[in-house]
Design a binder for these strands. Structure first.
Lengths: 213, 213, 213, 213
DNA sequence: CATGAATGAGACTTCATTCAT
DNA sequence: GATGAATGAAGTCTCATTCAT
């Protein structure tokens, strides 16, 4: 796992730091979603977090730190929630489960995902690198799942196809967050079912009956 | 076709307006790609366009106008290049052609696409609406293609599946522009072939031999 | 002569730059004298110069630039006014003239000198180096005068004494500016006469009749 | 002797006050020397003193108090060290001794002197007055020495010359602290000898052999 | 039509000081 | 007495926009 970038704080009490940063992340996500990183002022972030501008800067050093904290916390939650997946089973069934988990996650953290992908380009260089690494770790997760399915013979994909397919799965999830304005006719359940069908068929090359669809 | 938003200019000569705006769009795309809309200053845009800040403001009224002009010009080019497609044929073959055209287009206009999707959220409300409309028109294009394939019996999709699938096709194209950092191992040709295979199989549910693959 | 540090300006018209900078130097000197560099705000400088804060920053990049400009302009004036001195004559008489010129200069530019010496420590590193160089050039001027007097036999000083003596002369001039609060009982004429007497006797080691004393 | 300005403290224990203030003066001098009064933060002072910002404010009321305390403690030490001088003797010899003491003092307290003269302008009005008074007391010390030499016939100076000469002596000492960057070629011993020679000759008007030179 | 100097609102950030623990 | 988290006034600097030339 990549090591976290440390964000300096002039406050010493670690648990307080965590608490305050959580407050400010929560406020920031809402604001960034609404107006974007650049149109959001540090004062607004402080206010949304429930403390003064001075206090905000006790816990970060620059506005970009807030963005980094937001992105980082999203990955933490993603990791936590996707961490339970059994990657090793190598069955289509577990792949389906993973997709379901992933799409559900995106549905529940829609705002966070949109913010992260829209604004991460505003991160300072090294923070951007860190975030990209995290992103690759997520894609790798799908790669492992697919590779195991291939190993167990449940899928038949060339190595290069595995990689591309993992991006493919990944990106279809983002769609639910980014093109929500076009998804009004679908429930998340429908979306998951239909996407899963498309994706599995795409890779399998034959009709497959999906459990629960 | 949706009517264009008019951008006010204090210059009368229409052909001059067009020329100047083209200059400034070309400069702006490069800059926006590099630093994003917010980090790019109007002075920089003017300079990149080859004229003074004063002149810039003879042809637009606000900085956001530049962004709109950029987005609009991208759609114009997309339209022009995708306009030749024969949507009515209703064959898998024409669908494959369309995908090829579309992915090639994205490859060639990568910067423009990235800018448009990254920055369009900064457009004023009505411009955003206009851009979204344009976007929907593009998706509809795939919908028509798919619907015709269904009508001709070459594909079998429920109406709701057609809509989702068209987004599916659409989004996979964006991937080439947005996840380029992860696509170094693929040529655009490989990418097109593999994606086409995944997508068609996903919709068809059977192995399909793609011409040229 | 040491090459000037260039201060960036986004304005192109060189003569305008000169004019505006002169305005701002004039205002800044008064303010710095009154409240010191740090207690003076950029807004105050702009106001004193007669234009807006935005305009101020068209002609400089940082507040420290103003300080540098102040120091530089002082040296320019000093150079201009001391430049006429005949350094080569090697007579006590010309040394006396030089002291008179120098002390008169300090009297007339008292505020400027105080500001320069009090605040130059706030200059950025390279500007500070530049200012120190200028300062050394001034001391060197006295060194040359003294060396010539030694060469012509009018004074008898060892090399090391020449150097120290030149600082000695230099520093006694600063006194008129810096300890003005203790100099109320003296006119500048008296001051010059008495100092000249002290200094020359100090170096000559005998009673000397000074012309005009 | 001028009465000290009282600096309020919310702590009662006088010996503790003294101890804490000494700690903070020591830290502050270093910091002020390095970065100047304005660029030094109260937090830094507290840290350098070895306690917290809260504690710092138990012993002073404003940041300027620290500067005053620094200046005051310097004068205390100066007084202590120069207090032993025999001012009444009225001999050149005792004058030479005094100069030696004074220049040695400046050499040993170089940082302190620089800080005091560079930063005292930032003192609040009444503190500034107090410091100036102290300064005048020091000059008066030289005045007394000179006057006694005149009285005893060892020097021949008019009253007004005595005053100016005392400033002259005083300022030459500051030179060692302020122009240290130009004094690398001299040891403090050389400096004292040469300066003493210049100064005495300046006042005496004849060659004088200095004991120990 | 073209230019570019001028403007000032507003952004980010610092830091002296307070006060509850 | 000691601590350090909280505060917010105030400072520096940027940049979209205007308008006289």
């Amino acid at each position: 796992m990549t090591k976290k970038r440390e964000i300096q704080s002039s406050v010493k009490d670690e648990s307080l730091i965590e608490k305050r940063r959580e407050q400010m992340i929560r406020g920031a996500v809402t604001l960034f979603k609404e107006k974007g990183f650049h149109r959001t002022t540090t004062r607004e972030i402080a206010k949304a977090a429930g403390f003064s501008i001075g206090t905000l800067y006790e816990y970060i050093r620059t506005k970009e730190d807030v963005l980094y904290l937001v992105c980082d916390s999203i990955y933490d939650e993603v990791n936590m929630r996707l961490g339970r997946l059994d990657l090793e089973k190598g069955s289509i069934e577990s792949l389906v489960k993973a997709l379901e988990q992933y799409y559900t996650l995106i549905d529940e953290m829609q705002d966070e995902f949109v913010v992260m992908y829209q604004e991460s380009k505003s991160l300072p260089k090294d923070a951007l690198r860190y975030v990209l690494t995290k992103e690759m770790e997520m894609t790798k997760l799908f790669e492992r799942l697919l590779a195991n399915c291939v190993a167990s013979g449940e899928l038949s994909l060339k190595p290069k196809e595995i990689v591309l397919a993992s991006h493919h799965l990944f990106v279809q999830g983002q769609m639910w967050a980014f093109r929500r304005w076009a998804m009004n006719d679908y429930t998340i359940q429908e979306f998951i079912e239909m996407q899963t069908k498309f994706l599995l068929q795409g890779m399998a090359g034959e009709k497959i009956t999906i459990q629960g669809a």
